[in-house]
Structure formats: structure tokens, C-alpha cells
């Protein structure tokens, strides 16, 4: 059974169809890249998998380990192991990163009937992972993402991904707003989380990211569908020829 199976998915927003009959199979252990021009429906796909309200599912199925994902609240999806790294992580003054992390990790562990972390245990774990991502301790004590640069916010997303230990990671333009050093840190953080039990879907415009995180499968999305799938060499082809060649295929 595929970890994630999307069949003939149709999604609309305000009577406009964004996803138009999309198919996608993702197995545990695989890293997929979804590339495509602006407006092809890549971000909508990531939001629908994570359960963001405001989208109308007009047809198709999204199965996660064979279960109907579309019927679950976002909270439940997170507890089942779905993680979306946001393109634009939010900032919340008044909630420290540490308090937020503890609340979220323990909520997920509770939902999975795992024991909640003790405070010292959790602090130690956060310090370790934060250290590996070059996130200084004082940042964790501040309001969530408040005053963080784009790169710091993205590192904070990967910190959460590492702590939550999800089975499916969706990375929505994790490379946007990152300079080359930040990209290297974020990529190595993501690579460290690759495992046979975990799948990743990277959504990106740029091949640059795929130099750092080498995907197993590359998909091209256009006008709400996957129009071509291939190995990592497909990304090179896209860079040489652009997306225009696929516009007709859609």
C-alpha cells in the first residue's frame, strides 16, 4: 500500500477549479519533487493534504495509509503523521517557540497514545536538534518566529519537523527566501530526516534545491495535474527547456 495515494483529485476555490484530476502515489522512503509554474496548483495540493479550510473538494480521493485523509481535521492529520512546512510560516507574538513546541509535540504524542515528554527530556531534545540547525537558544525563548528572518523561519519549520517525527513531510517552497548558506543548513537538516519509513514531497520552482536534496522522483505539474513524472534528470530537462513544453500536455 502506498503511504499517500491521490486519485483523480479535483479541488476548487470560489468556483474556480485549481486541481483538475490529479493522481499521485508516494511510498514510504521516497522523496518526490513537484515542480511547475506559478498557478499550476502546487501549493493548493499541499494545503489540501494538510487540511487547510477554504477549499472545495469536488471529486477524487486522498488516502493516507489507506485511510480517507479528507475526512480528518488538520489536528488529526498531524497526529497521524502528516507535516506541512509552510511557505510562509506565521509569527505569533506572545507564544514562545519553546512553549509552542512543547504544546504541539505533546498534543501529537497524546493523540498517538504515546507518553508525553518530561520537561528536561524535551529541553534536551530541542537543544540537540536546534543546535544541528544552527538555531540559537535565545531564538527558541522568543515569540514564535517574531523578528525572525525568512531563513530563520524556515529553519524553525525543519526544527518542528525533526521533533514531530512525521511519516509524510510536505515542504512547500522550503527554498524560497533562503540564501545559499541557509539553503545548505536547511537541506542538510532535511536530508538527516530521510529514512525508509518517511516520505517527503518537495514543492519548488527551482532546481537549485534538488542539488541539495536529491529526489527519487520528479513530477511536473501544470494546470492542476501531474503532466510528467520521471527521475531526477527530469529537473535538468526542465531547467534547459522551461515549463512551456508541458502547457499543451495539460
Amino acid at each position: 500500500m502506498a503511504l499517500l495515494e491521490i486519485r483523480e483529485l479535483h479541488v476548487g476555490v470560489e468556483n474556480r477549479e485549481i486541481i483538475r484530476g490529479l493522481h499521485l502515489n508516494v511510498n514510504a522512503g521516497e522523496v518526490h519533487a513537484i515542480m511547475g509554474p506559478n498557478g499550476s496548483g502546487k501549493s493548493t495540493l499541499s494545503h489540501v493534504i494538510a487540511g487547510k479550510p477554504g477549499y472545495e473538494i469536488t471529486g477524487g480521493q486522498v488516502l493516507f495509509r489507506g485511510e480517507n485523509l479528507l475526512r480528518m481535521e488538520p489536528t488529526e492529520r498531524a497526529a497521524k503523521g502528516v507535516f506541512l512546512a509552510f511557505q510562509y510560516p506565521v509569527d505569533i507574538p506572545g507564544v514562545t517557540t519553546m512553549n509552542f513546541l512543547r504544546a504541539a509535540v505533546n498534543a501529537q504524542r497524546k493523540a498517538r497514545e504515546q507518553q508525553e515528554f518530561s520537561t528536561p527530556e524535551f529541553l534536551k531534545r530541542v537543544r540537540e536538534v536546534a543546535g544541528s540547525l544552527n538555531i540559537p537558544q535565545h531564538m527558541i525563548k522568543r515569540g514564535l518566529n517574531v523578528g525572525f528572518s525568512g531563513g530563520e523561519k524556515k529553519r524553525n519549520e525543519i526544527l518542528q519537523m525533526a521533533l514531530f517525527e512525521p511519516s509524510l513531510c510536505i515542504l512547500d517552497e522550503i527554498d524560497s527566501g533562503l540564501d545559499i548558506d541557509a539553503l545548505r543548513i536547511v537541506s542538510s537538516g532535511i536530508n538527516a530526516l530521510r529514512s525508509p519509513e518517511r516520505a517527503m514531497i518537495m514543492i519548488t520552482h527551482y532546481r537549485r534545491l534538488l542539488d541539495h536534496i536529491v529526489p527519487d522522483i520528479v513530477h511536473v505539474m501544470s494546470k492542476g495535474r501531474v503532466v510528467k513524472s520521471g527521475g531526477k534528470e527530469l529537473a535538468l530537462e526542465l531547467e534547459a527547456c522551461g515549463y512551456a513544453q508541458f502547457e499543451d500536455a495539460a
Binding site: 492529520r77 505569533i92 509552542f100
Partner: peptide, 15 residues
């Protein structure tokens, strides 16, 4: 803010 609420729910917090 709906975006903030979704962010927190997507990280496992109940509504």
C-alpha cells in the same frame, strides 16, 4: 486569524 489557527492545528493542536 484563520491562518494562525490553521498553522497551529496543522501542528497537532486541537481547534
Amino acid at each position: 486569524d484563520d491562518t494562525l489557527l490553521f498553522y497551529l492545528r496543522a501542528r497537532g493542536l486541537s481547534e
